[in-house]
Simulated assay, not measured.
Amino acid sequence: MSQAETAPQSGTVHPRRTVDAHDPARRRNPLWTLGLLRSEIITMLRRHRTFALLGVLAAVPVLIGIAVRIETGGGGGGSGGPDGGAGPAFLAQVTNNGLFLVFAALAATVPVFLPMAVGVVAGDAVAGEASSGTLRYLLVAPAGRTRLLLVKYASVLAFCLVATLVVAASALAVGALLFPVGEVTTISGTRISFGEGLVRAALTALVVAVSLTGFAALGLFVSTLTGSGIGAMAATVGLLITVQILDSIPQLSGVHPYLFSHYWMSFADVLREPVHWDDLIKNFQLQGLYVAVFCSAAWARFTAKDITA
Rank of each mutant, 00 (worst) to 15 (best):
T224G: 10
D20N: 15
A163T: 03
L212P: 03
L63Q: 07
T12C: 06
P61H: 00
A107Y: 03
F215M: 01
A300R: 14
P111C: 05
V166I: 03
G144V: 00
A108H: 08
T236D: 07
T33S: 15
A235P: 10
W264N: 08
E71L: 09
D23K: 13
V68T: 11
G78V: 14
D20V: 09
M116I: 15
E40L: 13
V60S: 00
G195Q: 05
A104G: 04
P180L: 07
V162S: 01
G87F: 09
H276M: 11
V162M: 06
A309C: 14
R27F: 13
S193F: 06
C160E: 05
P24E: 03
F221S: 05
S2H: 11
M233F: 08
F215S: 03
A107V: 08
K282R: 13
A86Y: 13
Q287H: 00
A268G: 06
F260I: 10
G214Y: 00
V102R: 02
V19N: 12
L177E: 12
I41Y: 12
Q285C: 15
L240F: 09
L271G: 09
D124K: 13
S155L: 03
D278I: 12
A163E: 00
W299Q: 14
G84A: 14
V112G: 04
N97A: 11
T224R: 02
L150N: 15
I42D: 15
E129G: 04
V167R: 00
S193A: 14
T134C: 08
F194L: 12
G35L: 02
L31S: 13
T308H: 09
R200Y: 09
L150T: 13
T50M: 03
P24K: 02
S248W: 02
W264E: 05
L220H: 03
F100S: 07
H256T: 05
A173G: 11
V275F: 06
S2Q: 13
N96W: 08
A122H: 06
A201L: 02
G175E: 01
W264F: 03
I281Y: 05
E273M: 12
H276Q: 06
R69I: 07
P111K: 03
K282W: 08
S228T: 05
A235M: 14
D20M: 12
G229P: 00
G81H: 04
V156L: 04
D306I: 15
G197D: 00
S131T: 11
I64N: 01
M265Y: 13
K305D: 15
G144N: 03
L271H: 12
D278P: 08
A298I: 14
M265G: 15
F103Q: 05
F260S: 07
V181P: 04
P24D: 10
I245Y: 08
D124H: 11
V199R: 10
I66G: 09
T190D: 10
G65A: 09
K305E: 14
T186S: 00
R191E: 11
G74Y: 05
G77I: 03
S39I: 10
F260V: 06
L63I: 09
L240E: 06
R17T: 11
L203T: 07
P250S: 05
P257I: 04
I241S: 07
W32A: 13
G78W: 04
V102S: 08
L271K: 14
T308M: 09
G128L: 02
